[in-house]
Simulated assay, not measured.
Amino acid sequence: MNNIEEFYKSHGKKVYFFLLSFVHNEDLAQDLTQETFFQAMKTINNYRGDCKPSVWLCQIAKHIWYKYLKDNNKVECISIEQIYKNIPDSYDIDSQIIRKEDKIEFYKKLQKLDTSMKEVVYLRISSDLSFAEIGEIMGQSENWARVTFYRAKKKLMEAIYK
């Protein structure tokens, strides 16, 4: 990590798309990505190397995004169409839930979940992250991410079929 430019080239795109999956605004995602790398370079000595650099950067990016929301008194607003276009067809949650109800109802039900469940589902379906990466971003274990995703999916299914 001696060369900042190489570090940015190798991880910048992943951080940018991670942030874009939350903000759905290319300019804002670029600004937050730059802030992420600025903060990362300021605290590079704190990086212990116990996770991939991209996961460490996504953790920083997530906190910068939360700070942006708090500082700007913004509620987490995400266009359903923008999220839905990023959902891979291969996810079981997509095929089972979206077929039963339209996507608007799915996201209304998703918003009723607690914050950690909602965030795990968003990270899984919109950022295409593994459970290990989600666990690292959330400061939890891979197993925690799997269980949280499973429980969220179960609650969504119950809400749809009741």
Rank of each mutant, 00 (worst) to 15 (best):
Y122A: 05
N143G: 01
A152S: 10
D27K: 14
Y150T: 09
E105S: 08
A29K: 00
Y107T: 05
S95T: 07
Y161I: 11
T36P: 04
K100L: 10
E105M: 04
S141G: 09
S10A: 06
N46Y: 12
Q82Y: 10
N143R: 14
K103V: 12
S141N: 05
Q96S: 10
K154S: 11
Q39Y: 13
A61W: 06
I137R: 08
Y161S: 13
M138H: 03
H24F: 15
F38T: 14
N72V: 02
L129Y: 04
L129P: 00
F22M: 10
S126C: 12
R146I: 11
M138R: 10
K85F: 02
D31Y: 00
G12A: 02
I78L: 13
T43F: 05
Q82S: 13
K108R: 13
E81L: 06
Y84H: 14
E5C: 00
R48Y: 06
K42M: 11
P53I: 07
K52M: 12
F17Y: 13
M117T: 00
S127H: 04
F149Y: 15
K100A: 12
H63C: 01
F17T: 07
W65L: 11
K74T: 02
E142G: 06
C77H: 12
S95W: 10
S54V: 11
I160T: 10
R99Y: 11
A29M: 01
R99E: 15
V147I: 15
E136I: 02
L20Q: 04
I60Y: 05
D94N: 15
A29H: 01
I104S: 14
Y91L: 05
Y122W: 14
P88Q: 11
I78Y: 03
D102S: 09
Q59F: 00
V75K: 14
L32G: 01
D71M: 09
S95D: 09
Q96M: 10
Y47A: 05
K74E: 10
Q30H: 08
A132M: 09
S90R: 14
L110H: 00
T148E: 07
L156K: 03
E119P: 02
I44Q: 12
S54Q: 07
K14Y: 02
K103N: 06
V55P: 00
V147L: 11
I104Y: 15
N46F: 13
A159V: 02
